[in-house]
């Protein structure tokens, strides 16, 4: 695995359009985002957050410009409407995908995500928030250097979401997370860097804003947090 200190995500004049469409999803997108850490991808609906995320996973190379991921070899992408197969309990599914030696991590994640009481349930029997949580746990148990979480905690209540994000930051300090969210307070508070994709027509299609990177042991500075939020909103 590459050294986490040398992680960097950069993009130079990237332009992408879907086949048989005239308008590009984004055009001349350039940014540099250092890693590792818990970072965010923010922007209004339709600016190409999910499209950019899919390009980062390498599933499509049909774009102009350059996307570089220094020190990042293995990228995983997860989104909030994913499902687990219905033929086994979610605990059994977790058991099947956990790598040898990772059982301790699994137990810690299950406790952190408050999913212990639901391991015997089928996926269809869970609430939306529980579904999101169990799905995210199985990704965190995989071997990755960058994990793109596309609204992965969308249906989770705020206190639990906060516990989960802080827990992830404690457990995986050397990984690069890219958290796609529409919650400006959350990304400003918890993320180290926020890649903001601007609405169409803005002069700068992308900006990287510094967030407060709040951890379990610190107290968020309200004034600085509000400034970060304002900067994010202005860039979008």
């Amino acid at each position: 695995m590459a050294s986490s200190a040398s992680m960097q995500l950069s993009c130079r004049q990237a332009t992408f359009r879907y086949p048989r469409t005239a308008t590009p999803v984004f055009e001349d997108l350039s940014f540099e985002m250092p890693g590792p850490g818990f970072n965010a991808l923010f922007g209004p609906s339709g600016v190409g957050k999910t499209t950019l995320a899919r390009l980062l996973t390498g599933t499509s190379r049909d774009f102009a410009g350059e996307i570089r991921m220094d020190g990042i070899d293995r990228v995983l992408y997860t989104y909030n409407t994913e499902r687990l197969p219905g033929w086994s309990a979610v605990g059994t599914h977790l058991e099947r995908i956990v790598a040898p030696g990772q059982h301790d991590l699994r137990d810690r994640l299950v406790a952190l995500f408050d999913m212990q009481p639901h391991l015997a349930s089928r996926f269809a029997q869970l609430s939306l928030g529980q579904k999101n949580r169990i799905n995210l746990i199985r990704y965190l148990l995989q071997d990755f250097q960058m994990l793109i979480m596309d609204e992965s905690l969308a249906n989770v209540d705020e206190p639990t979401r906060e516990q989960i994000i802080l827990g992830i930051k404690d457990l995986f300090p050397d990984r690069f997370f890219l958290y796609i969210s529409h919650n400006v307070v959350e990304v400003a508070k918890f993320c180290r860097h926020i890649l903001v994709l601007a609405a169409k027509g803005r002069a700068r299609p992308a900006s990287v804003v510094s967030g407060r990177d709040h951890n379990r042991d610190g107290t968020p500075d309200r004034e600085r947090l509000e400034r970060a939020m304002l900067e994010i909103v202005n860039a979008a």
Binding site: L84, P85, Q142
Partner: peptide, 21 residues
């Protein structure tokens, strides 16, 4: 797609699993 995505992303997809899903 909603179910198969994880197995494809993590390289766990086999034809038997695909047919089963």
């Amino acid at each position: 797609r909603d179910i198969e995505h994880f197995y494809r992303m993590t390289g766990r997809m086999r034809w038997q699993l695909e047919v089963k899903i």
